[in-house]
Amino acid sequence: MARRDHQDSRGRAGTRISLMCAVLGALLVSGCSSALSLPEKPQPTDAIREDIESIFGTLYGEDAVRAVLVQQHGELVYEQYQESTADDTWDVRGVTRAVTSTLIGIAIDRGLISGVDATLGQLLPAYAAVLTAETAAIQLKAVLTHTANFAPMSEERDIRGTPADLYAQPDWVAAILADRASRGPGDGRFLFSDPGTHILAAIVAEATGMSPFRFADEVLFEPLDIDTAPLWEERFAAGRDPQELLREYQEADVAWPADPQGVNLGYTHLRLRPSDLLSIGQLMLDEGAWDDEQVVSATWAVQATSPVVATVGYGTIAYGYQWWVDPQRGVFYAQGEGGTAVVIDPVRDAVAVIASEVTIDDERGNHGYASATAVGLAVLLLADLSDDSE
């Protein structure tokens, strides 16, 4: 059942023609070819088939996209796998942020966190030594919305960022907090920060007394029937080659690497199946409910996926609690660098998932461009579905 009371605030999705122009424009720039095989079942609509054939090669070419799934009214209407199967897991990259946000919401629901007005001083007492009076007063809401002036990551496509190299830090959370103290409060505007999102994962660990992965397994993945066995959450540690750990990670099934203290990377490298992403999208579409169970409160699900702050440099797109919100196109979404996206359309009561295989050291093109293109493709496919508001 789709959310009904909050659809008007999201606006209506853009027309299919304008979406096609936008995505085909990207295709012409990329010069990619499109070649794929379609499954016999389930049969897609003719419009979805057309669009897939037209733009499938945009994301680094057809050798990168691994799965395309579209679901409406809780029923799968389109499913395609390219050189993969439904059981294969992929690094969902930045979609991880939406999972971390949901864990914060569940912790609040359970009284483990008092609310989004709680401060870092209250939430991370173990780090009192590196918190200044100013950073101790930062509210959870500011971290969730990237308005707390944590540093953005570097342009490198790995975990190195600010501090200069997190791999070399004995305590990533302490290093991130110390770096934030040195930066000062900033101006309160949106500044996208993966280190800031990792602080959210540390808050989950502190509040629950377990790693975010184990908490997620208990309160989120198990209710959604997401199989995580065996849990793979190896830690980055001083003296251990991070690339060696990442190579092991790429051979794991469901996995989520952790920092030296056992805090899973709140912003990246969660490995899931495309169908798992579809379930997470459906959960948020249905305002936190799953099989008559309220996995996360409707209050949180709606707040997290509604416009909370304006963004800088992203046009009309707004931001919620680690979810992007596009009122103009009537969707909210999570995106992962390299071509993965979970896009939810409340008006059409639908979810689309694009999953791509882009390894840690992949050198093809611009990963941010690919993630935006994945979102555009998903929105285009959703626009091919019937509009329930009509």
Rank of each mutant, 00 (worst) to 15 (best):
D5C: 01
Q7R: 10
D8F: 07
D8N: 08
D8I: 11
S9P: 14
S9N: 09
R10N: 03
R12T: 08
R12Y: 13
R12E: 07
R12S: 13
A13K: 01
A13W: 01
T15A: 02
R16L: 03
I17Q: 12
I17C: 10
S18M: 08
L19D: 11
M20G: 04
C21N: 15
V23C: 00
L24T: 12
L24I: 13
G25M: 06
G25V: 07
L27S: 02
L28S: 05
S30W: 02
S30P: 02
C32R: 01
C32E: 01
S33Y: 12
S34G: 06
A35E: 10
A35K: 08
A35P: 03
A35M: 04
L36E: 12
K41W: 09
K41N: 07
P42M: 10
P42Y: 15
P44K: 10
T45S: 08
A47S: 14
A47W: 00
A47F: 03
I48H: 00
R49C: 03
R49S: 04
E50D: 15
E50F: 15
I52A: 06
I52F: 04
I52L: 15
E53A: 03
E53K: 05
I55W: 00
G57C: 04
T58I: 15
L59V: 13
Y60L: 03
G61K: 13
G61W: 06
D63Q: 15
D63Y: 14
A64C: 09
V65G: 00
V65L: 02
